[in-house]
């Protein structure tokens, strides 16, 4: 089937099998290998990307489901040459070691800070609780996200995901 997906602001049209997973679409079809996969069962979260402005586990989303929608990946986090404060925070605070979970962690961090410019340690730990890191013991990831919050990282307007997904609003009849 033919799908068109906007990834990091650019439209891509590809013929794909309906069963193609979004993570494979990004990695194998578009060559955006910054998004990893690690577990098959949506437990580890290294495949996290934004779908219509919300982080999801792309190993458990079909590429077909992203047809006509917007995806944002780690490759779309920096604004040109300028790293996002979240990326800067991960570097400054040694928030990564092997780097495998890092893209997913940063996508969730960016999302959290867009909604909560001054998250507590507890807020941060909850936000990343669906994503596993085997290297850092989470300590420096938490610090990195706090660093970003303290260095202009909070509530930055995202360049993707401005379309509200279904169900965002609550209607009182």
């Amino acid at each position: 089937m033919r799908i068109t997906v906007t990834v990091n602001g650019e439209q891509y049209t590809r013929d794909v099998e309906p069963r193609l997973l979004l993570v494979h679409f990004l990695r194998d079809e578009l060559g955006l290998t910054g998004t990893h996969w690690g577990c098959d069962t949506s437990n580890c979260g290294v495949c996290a990307v934004w779908l219509d402005g919300t982080p999801v586990k792309s190993c458990t989303v079909l590429a077909a489901m992203a047809d006509g929608h917007e995806v944002r990946t780690v490759e779309g986090l920096a604004q040109g040459a300028e790293l996002d404060p979240v990326q800067q925070g991960f570097v400054a605070c040694h928030g990564l070691q092997c780097g495998f979970c890092t893209p997913g962690m940063m996508m969730t961090a960016r999302w959290l800070l867009d909604r909560n410019a001054d998250p507590s340690e507890e807020d941060i730990r909850k936000a990343i609780s669906g994503q596993v890191c085997r290297c850092t013991g989470y300590e420096n990831i938490v610090r990195a996200i706090r660093w970003a919050a303290e260095h202009g990282g909070g509530a930055r307007t995202a360049d993707a995901g401005t379309e509200p997904a279904p169900g965002r609003e609550e209607v009182r009849a």
């Binding site: 290998t33 910054g34 780690v74 490759e75 986090l77 790293l83 570097v91 990564l96 780097g99 495998f100």
Partner: peptide, 12 residues
């Protein structure tokens, strides 16, 4: 090494 990792440019 972090410059490549935070950009998603590691090569695994």
């Amino acid at each position: 090494e972090d410059a490549r990792f935070v950009r998603g440019h590691g090569t695994y």
